[in-house]
């Protein structure tokens, strides 16, 4: 559990950080909270020659709510997400999900940017960001671009971000209606056996909009358009929920690990999705 030697960089601004990334290419990685990267380095599963610590870079932290649009700096910690009053009103699902990430010690240090940028299918925020239809701001040597969370993830640890780019911010619209982030895990600090993020809008007894995404049930987060469509226009009865669950299950591809075999994970996924829909609907 001793990492190989590395060069430590601590730039003051984004441009300097990008300069280091450009200079060293894939031998360099940015460090946010470090809860994924540092263990990988200590296990010598990641050999990083140049570690670029972002904690002194100005302008990467904080939560702003402008009209209906929420923007969160990449270096904002999970703890800050949990304790931000405005966010609790504008998008309460974020707080609900962040409270299910690890433990308070981890959440004081772990960041939303690191969580979404690392591309680990076990992380909770990527699925949630797809549910929210969030947009990620990427800054690189050629300027700034926006990539939708739903287009960002390619495979485990493989994302749309290039080696020279830094994910600086996340933005999405304030939510309305019912919400739920439901997660089954073996213990505190564990990745999900299965987790689901659900947002539902309601008009009278009818569901007018639904967004459903899942965590750790494929090698990327899974946004299930079909699952949402199965609920839209219905009154979210038992059969409707079953239809949504069936649609969601056809979009996932879990693998066996110490949490259990595929058959079990699919069963738990069905339960978790149904519970998330039921709870979100009760709040809509």
């Amino acid at each position: 559990m001793i990492p190989a030697a590395f060069e430590y960089h601590r730039p003051k601004n984004v441009q300097d950080a990008i300069g280091i990334l450009v200079e060293h290419g894939d031998e360099a990685r940015v460090l946010a909270g470090g809860h994924s990267l540092i263990p990988m380095m200590k296990l010598r599963m990641a050999a990083i020659e140049h570690l670029v610590d972002l904690q002194d870079v100005d302008g990467l932290s904080g939560i702003s709510i402008d009209g209906g649009r929420i923007t969160i700096g990449a270096m904002t910690t999970q703890h800050e997400l949990i304790t931000h009053d405005g966010l609790a009103t504008a998008a309460p699902i974020l707080r609900e999900a962040a409270l299910q990430i690890a433990d308070p010690q981890v959440r004081y240090v772990g960041t939303i940017g690191g969580n979404v940028a690392n591309g680990d299918p076990g992380n909770d925020m990527p699925g949630l960001m797809q549910c929210l239809d969030a947009s990620f701001t990427l800054v690189g040597p050629d300027g700034t671009r926006e990539v939708a969370a739903r287009d960002f993830y390619e495979a485990a640890y493989m994302t749309e971000r290039s080696d020279e780019e830094i994910l600086t911010a996340i933005s999405f619209n304030a939510t309305a209606g019912g919400y739920s982030y439901e997660k089954q895990k073996r213990k505190i600090g564990d990745y999900a056996t299965a987790a689901a993020a659900v947002l539902l809008q309601k008009d009278g007894d009818t569901c007018t909009g639904a967004s459903i995404a899942m965590t750790n049930l494929s090698d990327t987060p899974v946004f299930s358009e079909a699952a949402g469509a199965a609920l839209t226009g219905t009154s979210v009865g038992k059969a409707d929920i079953e239809a949504a669950v069936a649609a969601a299950l056809s979009d996932i591809d879990p693998t066996e690990d110490n949490r259990g075999p595929v058959e079990f994970k699919r069963h738990v996924a069905a339960v978790v999705i149904a519970r998330a829909i039921t709870r979100a609907w009760s709040r809509a």
Partner: peptide, 11 residues
């Protein structure tokens, strides 16, 4: 008796 083994028993 972790989750999946209990689940398997029920199954």
């Amino acid at each position: 008796h972790d989750h999946w083994r209990i689940w398997k028993t029920a199954n």
